[in-house]
Nucleic acid binder design. Structure first.
Lengths: 236, 236
DNA sequence: CGCAATTTTGGAGCGACTGCAAATTGGGTA
DNA sequence: TACCCAATTTGCAGTCGCTCCAAAATTGCG
C-alpha cells in the first residue's frame, strides 16, 4: 500500500515528460518536435522517454484506457429498461451541459484538435484509438445483451453511436476553431445532437430518396413492380 | 495521344516494383520485408521505389482512388426514387453474387486481410484510406441531396453504410480464414447483410432495452414518469 | 550527332525506435 | 554503516523509413 520513493519518482518523471512534451507540441506542432528535444527539455535520456511511452504519439495521446472505460460504462451502468442509444443520449447531453472533456467539449479542445489534424501520424494514431474504443464498446454491448460472438449487431450499434458522437465532437472543434463563441455553438449543437440521436433511433432508410410528388411515387411503384422478374434487387 | 517508349517503361517499372513487392509481402509478411529488399528484387534503387510510391504502405495499398470512385458512383448513379441505403444494398448484393473484389468478397481476400491485420502500420494506413473514402462518399451524398456543408446527416449516413459493409467484409474474411467453405459463408452472409441493411433502414432505437415482461414494462413506465422532475434526460 | 528534358542513382543525413551492456539509484539486510 | 540486489537510467551502435541533392544515365528531338 505504501509508496516508496522509487515509485513516486517514477510517476513524477513520467508526468514531467508528458507535460513538457505537451508544452512543446502545443507551441511548435507535433511534427516539428523531436523526441530528442523532449528528452532534453525533460532532462532525461531518449531511452527513458521510450521507457515510459511506447511511441512518440503516446506522448500526446495518453488517457486512452480512460476513454474506453468511460464508453463501456455508459452501457454497463445504464438505467433498467433504457436502450443503449438512450443511455448514450443521456451521457452525451450530460457531458455537454457540464463541459466535460469526454466527448471533446471542454474549453481548449480546439488546440488539441488542430494539433491532431495537422499531423498525419497523430491523426492515424487517433483513429487507431477510436477503433480500439469501438471494439471495447461493441464487446460490452454484446456482453450486456447476451449476443453471440459472431452477431454483427453489437458492432454495428457501437459504430453508429461512436460515429455520431465523434461527428458532433468534430463539429464543435471546427466551429470553435473558426472563432465562434462557445455558448453559441453548444446551443446549436444540442439541436443537432437531438436530430442525430433521433436519426439513430428511427433509421436512415428513406434518406436520399428523391420525393418529387407523383413522379417519385411512380418510380417507387415501378421499382416495387419489377421485384419478381429482376434477378437482383429483391434482398429485403 | 501516342505513348512513347519513356512512358511505357515508366509504367512497366512501376508495375514491376508493385508486383515484386506484393510477392515478397505475401510470402514473408509486410513488416519482415524492407524497402531496400523490394528495390533489390525489382532491380532498381531505393530512391526509385520512393519515386513511384510515397510510402512503403502504398506499395501494398494501391487502388485507393478506384475504391473511392466506386463508392461515390453508387450514390450518383442510383435509380430515380431509390434511397441511398437501397442503392448500396443493391450494389452490395450484386458484388456478393459476382464475387467482386470491391467489398472484399473475391477469392484470396483472406490473404490480403491477414497481411493487413498482422501489420500495425498497414492497418493504420488502411484505416486512413477508409476514412478518405468515407469523406468522399459523404461529400457525394451531400451534393446529391443538396445538403448544407455543415449538415451532419450526409456524413452520418456515409458512416453507417460504410460501417456496415466494412463489417460484413471483415466477417467474410474472418470465417474464410478459419477455413469455412466460401459458398457456405456467402449464403449465410446474405442473411446477415439483409438484416444489417434492414437495421440501417429501421434504426437501432430499441436495441439493448431489457424486455423481461411485466418487469421491463414497469421499468419503462417508471422511467417515463420521471421525465418531468429529472434535470437531465429530456432531450428528445 | 548533339542538346535538352526526364529518369535513375548514389550518398549523406534525419528521426523514430530497438537492443545491449554499463552505470546509477533505491530499498532492504547484515 | 557498509553492502548487495534489483530496478531504473543512460550511452552507444545500429536498423529502417524517408528526404534532399547533385551527378550520371536514358530518352526524345532537331
Amino acid at each position: 500500500m505504501e509508496e516508496g520513493l522509487r515509485e513516486r519518482k517514477k510517476r513524477e518523471t513520467r508526468r514531467r515528460i508528458a507535460d513538457v512534451a505537451m508544452w512543446l507540441f502545443m507551441s511548435r506542432g507535433f511534427d516539428n518536435v523531436t523526441v530528442a528535444e523532449v528528452a532534453r527539455a525533460a532532462d532525461v535520456s531518449v531511452n527513458t522517454v521510450f521507457n515510459y511511452f511506447g511511441t512518440k504519439e503516446d506522448l500526446f495521446l495518453d488517457r486512452r484506457d480512460d476513454l474506453r472505460d468511460l464508453r463501456t460504462r455508459v452501457v454497463r451502468e445504464r438505467a433498467p429498461g433504457e436502450s443503449v442509444v438512450a443511455a448514450f443520449r443521456r451521457d452525451f447531453f450530460q457531458a455537454l451541459d457540464e463541459g466535460d472533456w469526454r466527448y471533446g467539449f471542454n474549453e481548449g479542445a480546439e488546440v488539441w484538435g488542430r494539433l491532431v489534424s495537422e499531423s498525419a501520424s497523430l491523426a492515424a494514431r487517433a483513429r487507431e484509438l477510436e477503433s480500439e474504443i469501438e471494439e471495447g464498446l461493441a464487446a460490452a454491448i454484446a456482453e450486456e445483451t447476451g449476443a453471440d460472438d459472431d452477431d454483427l449487431t453489437p458492432k454495428l450499434v457501437a459504430q453508429h453511436i461512436l460515429g455520431l458522437t465523434r461527428l458532433l465532437g468534430r463539429h464543435y472543434t471546427l466551429r470553435s476553431t473558426a472563432g465562434e463563441p462557445r455558448e453559441e455553438i453548444l446551443t446549436d449543437l444540442r439541436e443537432r445532437a437531438r436530430a442525430g440521436f433521433d436519426l439513430l433511433e428511427s433509421g436512415i432508410g428513406d434518406y436520399g430518396r428523391r420525393s418529387l410528388g407523383a413522379d417519385a411515387v411512380e418510380h417507387r411503384e415501378a421499382a416495387g413492380d419489377e421485384e419478381d422478374d429482376h434477378v437482383e434487387g429483391d434482398h429485403r
